[in-house]
Design a binder for these strands. Structure first.
Lengths: 225, 225
DNA sequence: TTTATTATGTGATATATATCAATTTCTAAT
DNA sequence: ATTAGAAATTGATATATATCACATAATAAA
């Protein structure tokens, strides 16, 4: 069994802990293996743990008025999930679901809070994380509002290629419905947008496999909206 | 002159400082009186200070591809502005402009960071603030995407009434263009939405003065989109 | 296999809202 | 008060995309 101490991929925050603090962390922390589709946290339920996504990929989603959830963001390995709620409110305000097989560590709320209060560097790392996160939202927000569907899809494809998969040929582990929920559109419009981008020769798509053929053109569409 | 020590409306974070730390804060902090329209921080410029909005109201806005800025949020008194950038990136990623006469304290970056690293409670309060903020975005995001203009305007009117002005009769210190930038629409559509809500007797509007006549109906429109 | 179920694709149509153009109202300056 | 400039309103039109309806493909179950 891997302890927090021996864990090679612990967060920067955890790296800043003293031996004693790391021991506290270790005692109140459980690692769980998830498969795609497993729920990490669920909107509306009491928040008892903070989740740390060690490996894998998850979607952060939220109920709207309409039936389908909206996908707020994709959480990559190294992300803390559910800490927003844990510190002030007690009920999770959003859900998180693994979209790839993932390893997740659950840390008890009380422990998490204690570490923040004990170790300023731990808190500092969390602040960095939260700030970074907020800036991403600002960007996403601006892009979503000012671009139309083709541009938003281009953004998403480039995001998966550059930030997540680091490859020009990759799987986007989202259904067309989920893609729509992510770029704030509909299944049908996503299908058509994929066709548009394929037709002009920027990408090649088979099911969930995307291959970027002409990056420059794709970037141009992303930039022009 | 008001010192940080004697300041009655210092932030919860500052309240947690020791006398010595408060002295450090005091030495690197300047209070400035702004009038509506004054810039607090500007996107693209080097971030040297964190701003604390002591009193007043400000808009947080960001350049898009199109000419007009988008308004990401309204910052109320008690908000820290510009701390996202200061900790990781060096260039402000968004602008902040006073939309009412305001008192703002500017704290040097180095000092701000020092206090985070010295005092875990200070950091903890900032984390609370950031988490709260993030949850607001999630809500705003969900609402914006799923409601149409009338519903989004209703949201905004209720937001100013309940959260900011705490009155059913109040001034929204935004032009129609700014209102549009806030609810992600256009000047003309905002005008028409205001007319819609007036026509059905939910509100009464003269220029920037809004009076809520039928709250229940307004809430209903907000909820149904 | 066959059948049921779910995901995806495609065409036709509806609609909310952006855009364009012209007018009126408000505000500030001389 | 008069003029100039900006902000807001109003109407007509264009358009991106949602919605609806149906067809097809992929997947899981019997």
């Amino acid at each position: 069994m891997v302890t927090c101490e021996s864990c090679g991929i612990r967060s920067k925050a955890v790296q800043s802990l003293t031996d004693e603090e790391l021991e506290i962390h270790q005692q109140n922390c459980a690692e769980i293996k998830l498969v795609a589709g497993d729920i990490i946290i669920k909107e509306g339920l009491l928040s008892t743990h903070v989740a740390y996504l060690k490996t894998g990929l998850a979607k952060i989603h939220k109920k709207g008025m309409k039936r389908t959830d909206q996908i707020l963001k994709i959480a990559q390995q190294g992300s803390y999930i559910g800490m927003q709620t844990i510190l002030s409110q007690k009920i999770h305000q959003y859900s998180a679901t693994a979209i790839e097989d993932s390893d997740v560590c659950f840390i008890g709320v009380a422990t998490f809070k204690e570490l923040i209060m004990r170790n300023a560097t731990f808190g500092h790392e969390l602040i960095q994380f939260l700030c970074q996160d907020e800036l991403s939202y600002f960007n996403r927000f601006a892009n979503l509002q000012q671009k139309q569907v083709d541009g938003r899809l281009a953004d998403t494809i480039l995001y998966f290629a550059n930030d997540i998969k680091k490859h020009h040929d990759f799987i986007i582990p989202l259904s067309r419905n989920e893609l729509a929920a992510f770029i704030c559109s509909t299944r049908e419009s996503v299908t058509r947008a994929i066709k548009d981008l394929s037709d002009i020769g920027t990408i090649q798509v088979t099911g969930k496999r995307f291959t970027i053929i002409n990056v420059d053109l794709l970037k141009k569409i992303s930039e022009n909206g």
